[in-house]
Write a protein that binds this DNA or RNA. Sequence first.
DNA 1: CCATCAGGGTACAACGTTGGAAGCAGTCGG
DNA 2: CCGACTGCTTCCAACGTTGTACCCTGATGG
Lengths: 348, 348
Amino acid sequence: MSVTIRDVARVSGFSIKTVSNVINGHPQLRPETRQRVEDAIEELGYRPNLSARNLRSGRSGVIGLIIPDLTTAYFAELADAVMRTAAARGLAVLIEPIGSGRENELAALRGQHRHMVDGVIYSSLTLGAGDADLLKSVDTPLVVLGDTSFDGQVDRITMANTAGARAATEHLLAAGRRRVLALAAHEGDIVASAELRLAGYREAIEAAGLAFDPQLVCYADSWHRRGGAASMTKLLEDGVAFDGVFAFNDTLALGAMRVLQESGRRIPQDVAIVGFDDLDETRYSLPALSTVNPRRDDIATAAVETLLRRIEGGPELEAIEIETGFSLEIRESSGGSDQKATSATNAA
Amino acid sequence: MSVTIRDVARVSGFSIKTVSNVINGHPQLRPETRQRVEDAIEELGYRPNLSARNLRSGRSGVIGLIIPDLTTAYFAELADAVMRTAAARGLAVLIEPIGSGRENELAALRGQHRHMVDGVIYSSLTLGAGDADLLKSVDTPLVVLGDTSFDGQVDRITMANTAGARAATEHLLAAGRRRVLALAAHEGDIVASAELRLAGYREAIEAAGLAFDPQLVCYADSWHRRGGAASMTKLLEDGVAFDGVFAFNDTLALGAMRVLQESGRRIPQDVAIVGFDDLDETRYSLPALSTVNPRRDDIATAAVETLLRRIEGGPELEAIEIETGFSLEIRESSGGSDQKATSATNAA
DNA sequence: CCATCAGGGTACAACGTTGGAAGCAGTCGG
DNA sequence: CCGACTGCTTCCAACGTTGTACCCTGATGG
């Protein structure tokens, strides 16, 4: 067996409780005592047994992160940010990739690892306002990352979808583009972020005194490279004229960019393009993709801190919603050399 | 507090231990008793407290996965595979991304979460044979994923680097290519997989009766898109003639492919290209990239099972090394429509 | 009719930790 | 010189689970 607090007590010559007090930073301890205990801990290489501590305290120091999957760049980068934030607070992260689809998302709420985490950060795509009661019925502290509101009944972190989309579109308009595509809404608008980003796009168009042209709004069934490529292929076939593209996420943008280049169009000379998400990859594409940086680190920080607040505060605490800021990363695909234009908002 | 085994005992009318026996599937129980206990469990929605179980049994049901980072597609997909395998065995996975560099890798071995996992799967890039003693000194059960041997002293899962590379190169040769690039070795060969894949490439070249031409072996400092692009740019500038490329991994291949296309070369007509890793992305690139599929699921399964074996068996158990099989995924970039050619090896 | 036995159940201790209550010096005020 | 107080330290119990040892009941055999 490994070294326990009992061994530390024996070696240091103090009682078990005194050692425990040292570990937990209790105030009333003679410095000398503290020092001798710490020496013994050091000497033995003692580390508290988390299971026992957890059993006693009801805490595990582990939080869960529920995401659709890890192989999508967006979620991998989100997970990375959450893990770094959590690690800074001494928390470990248990990732649960649940696959896509509403059924899987619901099943995850009853997941088998729920009882070994202090709380859960839940990145959902398909849950909507109607599921607020369901989420409230889960007795694990919960923070949702997502763009659908739950009537303020559930802690939620959301990103600046509309403002970010508007800034991206305005940037294209400011560069003289007049026919900017919105790529790509969802049929039926089941995904909230699509709706919000489309709204931001429209705001920018109308604020510039241009007419909102439904022909420039295209659709894709998946927000992946493939969807972006397919949409763009169809647009070119249809002969729609445009000189700018605001893609609702980076992979759509990359897929579209690829098709545009295959068709002989130059980026940004013929078509300027801006994405959304600031995936690592966008820095390495040719040309480097301009994009809205949703500040994943801020999202992760807000999520972890809100979760900790909920864990401390219990279910009675009033739910909060936080919208994080964004910045616009102007790269080659929209004509920038590589400056950064920043515009941030923060609202509770 | 949540529902405990005590509540189940009270409701079902049996003792705590009897309930425990039902949960743990002890044989000597009247079916009726079993049924009534299970009914009570169902009724109360009881779930065993893992911390208590773990404290009692010394097991946590959690394994650690130490990888450089999650944002690299290869590791994200590896993590995904490990998590799926582990989930099928009722294990949760605690991912610890440690950044790159030898120092970080060493630090991870003494990581803070080590005491809350039953064992660790460790994907290392920089550890070498000289570190065998170091690895053995870690008292947590450990399985290494990597291409460097530790003299058979540490459990290790490795992939078919040489055979896979040879198959990829042979495929290009069989399609009539005569000047096939090897992209890209590491300067100084610090990374074992580079060395092994280069050996496989060379085997194929020589087995075909061709001369191994050092001019066709190029170098890159990073196995990322950027490195592939930079290498290819330099090759084109240098005017090196070639009609095929075996890239040591997929991101190198994608970076190189991009530069080739920008230069006006057609893939696969002018240059056929094969990668290594079978990243999800390779299916969506244009053209779809042929690649060596290292069977990540097999690697993950072997890793988890070897780890479980080590956890059960203790440190005395003799270390094993497993080399998983591979298959060659022939896609558009090397002229295939989308067939799959398979060739697998398995050795202990 | 009692000893034996087996199936099926129960009581108790222990895993390592921490909070609460209490103990125990030494110091200070009356 | 006694009692209260202060500043540490110690003992005890408890978190929820499971293994060990034991007990009970009814059936069986001598």
